[in-house]
Write a protein that binds this DNA or RNA. Structure first.
Lengths: 343, 343
DNA sequence: TTTTGTTAAGTAAGCGCTTTCATGGAGGTG
DNA sequence: CACCTCCATGAAAGCGCTTACTTAACAAAA
């Protein structure tokens, strides 16, 4: 870092005091037009720009927001598809509002450790925090944040008491739409192949699955469920299990697109056709859903919208702390493709 | 941000001067063991941690590194697969070294504007910069950085004069291996479907393609090339053009996996078989290469390695500025799958 | 004994800014 | 003309830290 001109230099050149220069810079009233003009001339001449650090020391604000990306443990590269669109939209918004973005990544285990936040804020000096997590944000984390008086917004999850601002996806509604779509095509026996159920996403999807089938009056024995992880392999294996014993589901709802790809593989290997014999739907609308054959019906999460909204809310909270309505649940869009089209 | 205990508080509690406390914190010599112990006790008792901002103001260092992610204009979501692994590996390394990571994203057009860097460093106070770009980093950017005395490393590209530290991929070597592999399977007529040739990646791949074919003694008319963008659609259309007129290539090298997917679609639509009639290879080893049928031969870029290496070098430079060897070219691994297997 | 060196600790300046308080002049009022 | 108000400006404190300089104590050398 090179040191440029300071307030003092500008003041000297403009023939005024540093206080006046500071007033001009911060747009305060009570500065005469001529003084302002001469100060501005001096600023231009010296190519002056204020030292953010010094300013922060006085004001106690840094203009930096921290984004904590909470990840699987160990990290699963396929979750990356999910994270960058959110980062992008957060950044895009923050850029327009003149906030800086600092990022941190950690596993959900690390994140849960009581020592995590103290360590995190030890060195870091930020005004607010965005938490991108697929897991419940534990109570002690919210307390810690409150205690330190750091505004925060949770993206994709919530805390047990819904105390924090949070932006979530309507997983239940999405699953419900999916089930409705399949129901309308005449399906009666539904299978669910889930990913790790400790993730909140999955939790909502499981709930939605059960309640939708209930709503349609399906007997309990017609709702088959299996849980693995989020991989192609897991989908493949669990689908094989479904196929190994009666009753076979005629429609399979998968926790994400990768699981669906695995399931489709298992189905076609058995010589069964998709969607004629078994319909398959996924979740997340990743690029694979358009490439796989048949193309995969799936759910598009409003990732960019979530990121932007979270950033917006945090900035609003930072500008003037106010009790805001706490929870936002964003609707998801179902994307119908060939893997579930009724013939 | 909540204000906690200060140096002064610690000094008072320990019955010493602030200077002594500062010496203890920074591990300076000339502090007696008892004094140190009592200061440390006071620190613990007050749960004190130094104010990074105040420290930065004095030392002129912030402990923050900025990562500038330079993107297509408009943004193409499919490049995200590329960026996050790099961010991840950078972060992982920096975390261990106690550096913070601030990120910025911009289009390559914005990045090239003379006003970009001044504006960027206006507010931002960072010690070093990592530039993730697929385009040549222009001379004036390097000068600006030099002038401001900000160490930097370029990832995935370079500047015209190779003045900056940079980490690149051996695109030429990768293409050469690919061509060699196809040559060994008996192919004689090669097609290349490229993405935007203004990207340095593509540049290296084009070069490598030409020189490899030269090396194998192929006549010029047997090297067919077409350029579009990086999308499935582009690959599809350009492949159709290849198929529309003689001579048809028997092996097609694509600029990335998406282009390859499009090309494969065009080929199978014509009733031709892959790889029997035409072999196809891609680039980037994205998840689609494993999902498409037949599975796609492709090239795996050492993304994580590049990110880590870049971070390492920057930190080393920051710790003790030293003329380092300037350029690193990382080898890529070719991943042979079904789309190019000789029968 | 006096001088010099060494070490532990303190004093105080200052990093570049914001902000409170003080000041003085211009203008308005009775 | 005395008084008050209002406004533009300046002086100076202080945000929390590092560090050059100083001091004091004590030991070793002369």
């Amino acid at each position: 870092m090179q040191r440029g001109a300071t307030l003092k230099d500008v003041a000297k050149l403009a023939g005024v005091s540093v206080a006046t220069v500071s007033r001009v810079i911060n747009g305060h009233a009570n500065v005469s037009a001529e003084t302002r003009a001469s100060v501005e001339r001096a600023i231009l001449k010296l190519n002056y720009s204020p030292n953010t650090i010094a300013r922060s020391l006085v004001t106690g604000r840094t203009g930096v927001i921290s984004l904590i990306i909470v990840q699987e443990d160990p990290i699963v590269p396929t979750t990356w598809f999910y994270e960058l669109p959110i980062v992008q939209s957060i950044y895009d918004y923050l850029k327009g509002q003149d906030w800086e973005l600092q990022i941190a990544m950690c596993s959900y285990r690390e994140f849960q450790e009581p020592a995590f936040l103290p360590r995190h804020f030890n060195k870091r000096t930020v005004d607010g925090v965005l938490i991108l997590s697929a897991w419940m944000v534990e109570r002690h984390i919210v307390s810690e944040l409150k205690e330190r008086n750091i505004p925060h917004v949770i993206i994709g999850a919530h805390d047990p008491d819904y105390e924090s601002l949070c932006i979530e996806y309507d997983n239940e509604g999405a699953i419900r739409s999916l089930v409705e779509h399949l129901w309308n095509s005449g399906h009666q026996i539904f299978g669910l192949i889930g990913g790790a159920p400790n993730q909140l996403h999955m939790h909502g999807r499981i709930q939605g699955f059960a309640s939708a089938l209930e709503e349609f009056g399906l007997p309990t024995w017609n709702r088959l469920t299996k849980y693995g992880d989020w991989s192609i392999e897991s989908g493949y294996e669990l689908m094989q299990e479904f196929l190994a014993r009666e009753p076979n589901p005629t429609a399979v709802v998968c926790g994400n697109d990768y699981i669906a790809v695995g399931a489709m593989r298992a189905i076609t290997e058995q010589g069964l056709r998709i969607p004629e014999d078994i319909a398959v739907v996924g979740f997340d609308d990743t690029v694979v859903s358009q490439i796989i054959s048949p193309t995969l019906t799936t759910v598009r999460l409003p990732l960019a919208q979530a990121g932007r909204l979270a950033a917006e809310r945090l900035v609003r909270e930072l500008d003037k702390p106010s009790p805001d309505n706490r929870r936002v649940v964003l609707p998801c869009e179902i994307v119908i493709r060939d893997s579930s089209k009724s013939s």
